[in-house]
Structure formats: structure tokens, C-alpha cells
Design a protein around this nucleic acid. Sequence first.
DNA 1: CGTCTATTTGAATGTACTCAAAAGCGGTGG
DNA 2: CCACCGCTTTTGAGTACATTCAAATAGACG
Lengths: 192, 192
Amino acid sequence: MIDYQIFKNIAKHVSLSTNEVQHFASLLFVRDVQKKELILKQEQICRSIYFVEEGSLRGFNLNDDGKECTLMFAVRDWWITDMNCFINQKAAILSIEALEASKIIELTFDALEGLYKSNPKFERLFRILFQNAYSREQVRALHNISLKTEKRYYKFADKYPAIMKKVTQKQIASYLGVTPEFLSTIKKSKHS
Amino acid sequence: MIDYQIFKNIAKHVSLSTNEVQHFASLLFVRDVQKKELILKQEQICRSIYFVEEGSLRGFNLNDDGKECTLMFAVRDWWITDMNCFINQKAAILSIEALEASKIIELTFDALEGLYKSNPKFERLFRILFQNAYSREQVRALHNISLKTEKRYYKFADKYPAIMKKVTQKQIASYLGVTPEFLSTIKKSKHS
DNA sequence: CGTCTATTTGAATGTACTCAAAAGCGGTGG
DNA sequence: CCACCGCTTTTGAGTACATTCAAATAGACG
């Protein structure tokens, strides 16, 4: 297990001793999920943060009108959770589904709180992960309010080629907050 | 200085000894800025994170077409920076201006990196601040892509009454990513 | 091969923008 | 204290962006 991608991901930010790695590993749950399986269901308490060891996931919200909004994708080497519900341990706004057969690694809220207490390296690790996540969301918010859909689409496609390979156009449309029909017409018109 | 709001803010998340508070305080720069003064200028390296001790700030981007987009407001007891540029120590995308005469507290990147190394409590503190910031941005992203402008406006007004008192309608429009003219027509139509 | 879903296309409608002009408001100087 | 100036807000007409609904086509999968 110690040759898993998750340890390479961590090693980018902090260096752990063999013992620390072992302890961390002992807290993880590795799960193989199949395509379309839900790792987290909306309304359910969000008890864990997830790492994509292999495969791909999508976090989305289904509203009262039946409209799906994709908030995030996660491919190999990415972390994902419904952050707001995770940190407050309350009912999730998002569902998270597998886009294909995937291997995911689960770290529960309680285990993570224990890690924070037992070893400041984990405070550091997640401080870095969260600061990076916040930074990305801040840039995304700027793009959302300042750019036209067409430009946002091509920026997304440029920035995340690994995601483009895994997802349908309908899912990208729901990530951009437009209808699949409109995204279709955008792609047809000649682009920059 | 130790009765400043910033220490109450920190005490919500970690408890520091008198010595730790003193050390932290020794790293801070307190500045009085006047209305319209720029704390951070776009294109300039973003070297610090700021805390609003008193007053209010606005972070915005000015694009090539001369269009201003407000990414965030900060009132008393809030932290603000151009996160992406702060953590990479590169040219800022945002300018930050004072909306009124304000007292702000500046913590530089280098000082903060020193704090992380010297005392894990600061890793914890900023881990919590960043996770909360990320959580808020995630919710905001969902609202941006799923809700109509009208609903976003009233949600914002409900959630941040302290900000509503300080900012113009034009600035709110630029935060929502719509024109001031359009926001004006929204307010006129009868609302939910 | 047949079924289910994704994608495309088009017409009609709604949402939001641009441009222009008028009205309102706050601050400054005489 | 009033008059003027600059900026914000409002209003309206015309246009562009994006949605809804419906139907046709194309792909994916068992």
C-alpha cells in the first residue's frame, strides 16, 4: 500500500517518517467503486474526505427543479469532499459519484482530527492543501463573474485536459452552469 | 495592542500563551489607510495577508476592457489577500482598496512562513482559516452556477448585512458579475 | 441489434448587456 | 450656506447571450 499515489501526493508537501506513514495508512479505507456508484449522497452527513487513487469522480448538487450542477471533478491524485458539510459534519449539499470504475481512499473526519492533534505535520499538510484549494476557487470565482461562457469553456479545456478525457459535454455544461444545448452551439461557432 | 480584534479572531481557533501573542504581535504591521487608498496594487507582488482591524476593504480585478470585478469584500474581523498570488509570491491579479478610512494589520509572507516553522499552532490557525475560506468559496461557486442573479443578490444581502452597509450598489453589481443597470432593474421588480 | 442517453439543431422566449440620457446624492469651494 | 461638480443610480430602447422545448441524429452499451 505504501507505493500508493496518495503517499506521493503527501510527499509533495511534507516528509513523513516510515512510522508516520504507517500510522497514517492505518487510518485509511481503500475502496473500489464501480461506475455511477455514489461515494457520498446528498442530505447524508459528510463524514470523510476522499482521495482518487485511480479513476475519476464528480461532485454535484441536484436542486428541487431536478437541475444538476457539477461543482467539481476529481481525477487521479486529487482530493475531494463537500467541504462545508465536512468541516461542520452536517448534511451534504453535494453527491459524489464515480465517473468510471475507481479506487478511492477515504479519510474520516474523526481520523483527521486525531491526526491534527497527534502530529503537526498533518496540520501543515492540510493547511497547504486547503490554501491551494482556496486559491483555485478564488481564481474560479473571478472567471465565473468576469468571463463569457465561451472563454470559460476553452480555459477549462486547456487547464484540465485530464478531466476532458473522462467527462461528457453535458457534465462540463453543468460545471460551467449552462445548458448542454448552449455548450453545443458554443463549440460549433469558430473559437479563439 | 494586545486588545486588538485580531487576537480575538485568532483566539476563536487556537489559544496562544502570552509569549506567543507577543511574538506574533512583533511581526505585524499596523497601518491606518484612508478612503480609496490601495493596500495592494494589481501587477505588484502580493507579499502579505491583511486583517481588517477597523473599516472595510474591497478586492477587485480590472481587466483590459476597463471592467472592474469585485472578488471579495472584507469588513472588521476579516482576513483578505490575493491568495493565488500570495502563496506563489507572484504579481497580483487583484487590487485591494479601502472603502473608508480603515485600520489594517499586515502579516508578510516571510513572517508567516517563519511562524509556521516556529510554532505548529500557526499551521493550525491558518489551516482552519483556509479550510473555512475554501468552504465558503465552494458554496459561492455553487450559487454562481446554479442561481439567477436576483436570488444571488438577496442571498448576499441576507448573509452579509455588515457589508451592505458599507458598499455601493455598483460594487455589489461587480461582485455579482452583472452591470449596475441590471442590478437596479432587479431591485425595482418585486422580489421574493 | 435495440435501447438508452448524449449531442445537435432550430424556433420562440427570457435574461442580461450596451449605450444614452435623466435624476439623485455627496462633497467641495466660494 | 448654497451652487456646482463628479459619481451613482435609474430608466428606456435596442441588441446579444442563454434558456426552454421539441425533434432529429449520433454514440455507447448490453
